[in-house]
Amino acid sequence: MSPLLEITGLSVRSATKVLVDTLSLTLQRGERLGLIGESGSGKSLTALAATGLLAPGLRASGSVKLAGREVVGAADRDLDQLRGKAVAIVFQEPLTALDPLMRVGRQIREPLRRRARRDGRPLSGQALDAAVLAIMVDVALPDPVRIARAYPHELSGGQRQRVAIAMAIACEPDLLIADEPTTALDVTTQAEIMALLDRLVRDRNMALLFISHDLPLVASAVEQVIVLRQGVAVESGPVARVFSEPAHDYTRSLLSAARRFDAALEGRQ
C-alpha cells in the first residue's frame, strides 16, 4: 500500500530565498513523525505545502503525494476534495484558529456536515447537533451544551485548543498535522492537550505529523523525528537514537540548550 504522505525533494521558495530545501519524508498510516527545529526553520511551511495551502507569494517544487494524489501544482478544486478527508491541521494559536464571531458549536458543525455530505450520508440537523456534542465530549470539553453556544473569547486557552482539535477530527482525517499545538498554553494545559492528542491519534488510528521546537514534547509524542535547520533536514531517525546519539552539531546544540533549560529549572526548585 502506498504511504499516506510521501514528500520527495520538496523545496519552497519565496521571491528571494529558499525556505525549504529538497526535503523528503514518508509517513504511513498510523505512524507518528516529529518535525523539529527553531523558528523559521521551515517546519510550518512544510506542513502547509503538504496540504497545498502555501501563501500566494511562495512556490513549491518537487513532489508531495497525499493519499496517493499529487499536491504540488494541483488545482484548488481537486485539493478541496482531498483536504476534507486526508488531512487536518491543529494550529499553534487557538485564538486565531477559531472564528471570533461564530459560536463554537457551529464551527465544529461545519466540517462535520461537510464530511458527512461528501461521504454521501448527509445528516439531519438533530443528528449533526448530536454529533457535535459527541465530538466535544470526545475532546473532554466540560459542559459541552453550554460551550457549544459560547463564542471563542468566552473560553480559556486550553478549551479553545480542544475546540480546534474537535474541528480537526470532525473531518475524520487520516493524517493529523499538529503545528506547535501547545506552544501558546501553560505547562499543565500542555500536558493535558498532549495526552488528548495521544489518545485521539491512537483511538482513531490517525497518522500524526507533530511540529515543534520543544524537544521533550516531541520525544513523548512521536516515534520518528526529522531535525530541520534553515529548511534543510540535517538529521532523521527514531526519536531514541536521535536524542541519545545526535550525529549533527545542530541537533546537539538544540539538545544541550534544552538540557541547560531543564537544569536551570531543577536548580531553582
Binding site: 502547509l48 495551502l53 483536504r83 488531512v87 486565531t96 466540517p111 461537510r114 474541528m167 473531518c171
Partner: peptide
C-alpha cells in the same frame, strides 16, 4: 487568519 486556513484544510 488561521481559521481561514483551517476551513480550507477541512475542504471548505
Amino acid at each position: 487568519m488561521d481559521y481561514i486556513t483551517a476551513a480550507r484544510t477541512s475542504g471548505s
